[in-house]
Design a binder for these strands. Sequence first.
DNA 1: CATGAATGAGTATTCATTCAT
DNA 2: CATGAATGAATACTCATTCAT
Lengths: 213, 213, 213, 213
Amino acid sequence: MSSSIKTLAPGRREVNRKNNRDAILDAARDAFAAIGYGGTTVRDIIRRTNLASGTFYNYFDSKEAVFNALSEEIGSELRHLLRDVRRRATSFDSFIEDMFYTYFSYYANNRENYLLARSNRGRDGLNEVMQGPQVRAGLAELNDDIHKAIAEGVIPPLDVDFLTASLGGVAFSILDEMMERAPLDPEAAAQFATRLFMAGVQGTYIGDDVNDG
Amino acid sequence: MSSSIKTLAPGRREVNRKNNRDAILDAARDAFAAIGYGGTTVRDIIRRTNLASGTFYNYFDSKEAVFNALSEEIGSELRHLLRDVRRRATSFDSFIEDMFYTYFSYYANNRENYLLARSNRGRDGLNEVMQGPQVRAGLAELNDDIHKAIAEGVIPPLDVDFLTASLGGVAFSILDEMMERAPLDPEAAAQFATRLFMAGVQGTYIGDDVNDG
Amino acid sequence: MSSSIKTLAPGRREVNRKNNRDAILDAARDAFAAIGYGGTTVRDIIRRTNLASGTFYNYFDSKEAVFNALSEEIGSELRHLLRDVRRRATSFDSFIEDMFYTYFSYYANNRENYLLARSNRGRDGLNEVMQGPQVRAGLAELNDDIHKAIAEGVIPPLDVDFLTASLGGVAFSILDEMMERAPLDPEAAAQFATRLFMAGVQGTYIGDDVNDG
Amino acid sequence: MSSSIKTLAPGRREVNRKNNRDAILDAARDAFAAIGYGGTTVRDIIRRTNLASGTFYNYFDSKEAVFNALSEEIGSELRHLLRDVRRRATSFDSFIEDMFYTYFSYYANNRENYLLARSNRGRDGLNEVMQGPQVRAGLAELNDDIHKAIAEGVIPPLDVDFLTASLGGVAFSILDEMMERAPLDPEAAAQFATRLFMAGVQGTYIGDDVNDG
DNA sequence: CATGAATGAGTATTCATTCAT
DNA sequence: CATGAATGAATACTCATTCAT
């Protein structure tokens, strides 16, 4: 009897624990987005919470730990979404557009995560926090995708690392621009990004007088 | 008596003042690049200096003030260089490539500034530090350039803000990739970026099955 | 209904209560020996246990309370042993040697208690912890013993308090030295201590040139 | 002119620095004596001072560092005094008595240091704080002295380490007893200790019925 | 009674900033 | 102006203790 209850309802304690953990994660998301990782203090996080200062340490060891949990979360969600994209791709073009679209949509629907990621982009050096394993892995997979596309003759044999970097750069920059607009239109953004990137890759542009040495 | 000494060596004070200010700026560049803006303390800066802690406040009011001075400096240098590029441009293509090349070269020759900019990119929200007025102005000028190019029929009438963003995104991402290579080859990077961007802009790529709604 | 269970298993509760109390005492012994009284926290104690933190307070009010319980325990054991020694003594010499031997043997067989006592020796001032009532009482009894020995003419009429102190000092210091040796040899230690103390007491040593005062 | 002033008067800054350092050392002596090393916090130290909390760290890195400074100080003073004793010794007996006397006198004249040493005696395990290098070195020298005395036939060939330990034990315990009396009489204490130790060492005491197995 | 999460006061330490020299 | 010690607010983190389950 009591065991069946435990199965049906998680018990107040577990529920509360989950709630508190989530409250801390949400507060941290807010804080990191607003003040950036370096500037955020643990106090900034718990201040955005109803909890006592010590409670923070029942859930995380440090602000770095919360940050890692957050970027794991975002990275994991994005990677799963992009894995599905890869799975259902029928051509390189459609893959690229679907990927842009999925990526833009994710952040359009999670503005807090967007702000968090944006505030902490490019941060590496000692901290390397937002370039966590998830992001690295995602970029590595893209690199593979491009390698394969070249091997299959779908795109010309350009510098693969430059291409991967460009893909990321276009994604970041169009994302930033899109997020400043209302209404948010991830589809238009994806079409623009895809057109630019695919035409850029396949195009036969040849500079005219660019030979300045 | 002692004042006579001060009077006799007229430029001495100014020279020393300049030296100290520069020493602080250099130390701050180091520190921000290594630890990031948020993580850097005034102590981190003066520690990289022969000066006493109090001396810092004879030159700057806070770490934010030094940071602003640094980004003014970098922004100003870059804007002057890019203004020259604009002045000597003979065509949109050549302007774009020259711009990429100049931009990449600048950071190739100033790795400290690159690290500084990189560590603090995307940081805005409350701090807005690296997106200072200089950078904003530079992007605004680029926006105008693209507007004009469209008006003159040099490039198709695409979404100007998306285009400006993309130009920046490609510039950032290729720069990052280039800076990890040895030897540094800004020319190759500029050619790649130009080709990608210009073909992307002018290309007539049309997605095939991308209409997913 | 549920109370019937409680009634049916009569000693169970008391047994468990005893177990938990002992577990806490053992953990505290470990902790105090390893970290010292001042440095030990209640957390250090329960961490060495399978119990939950709150359970500690079902048995003790504070770390001081556990410490007192521990020193009561050790003091009580030692006092009983030394009382037996006193009871079976046939001469002052044999009493002293038996006492040393018993004392050294006790700690040789209870290294944890030795470490505990050693780490917290001399600690009084505000805390007075290890010089608890048991130890004081033991020393008072020794003081009486010496008084009697003097009254009976067994030893010369020296300063009794200095003598008691010396007995303790020799006991402590020889104990420390013995505990660092392997194998532990409480008998040899007792013989050495007895010889030194008894000859010292009875000896007719007269300084030669020591009259400097 | 100004340099001569500097030589004659240390300058307010140095004076103040010295004063503050001394104030911290004195406060720490108080605190350690009263609460013991483990129980003392840095706050306990600065609270006994007119200084601000941060000022502590201009002089010492941690409470351990102050403690080390204090025990270096005491150890160094004692070692110098005992070195003089050793130098002026004319016989082993006179050496021992002079040593006791010097030792007792030192603490009789420095009750704060006595309390400090007493509160933190026996503290080792992880902390080993009061058994610092000075004390170890002092005991090692005593060990040598006893070795030599045996080699020269001045005292019988007893267990040297036990003897050294006993010397220390007698010194500690008589010191404790003496410090509780008024007036303080280091000379009487030294005579008692010397008599006990020297007769103990030289005496021909042989236990009678000590054969307990 | 046992549990272990919540609490908030307490601790060590760092920092930006001031100011006497 | 340069110096560097003093300051005390702020920060990360720990702890004893309570209390709902």
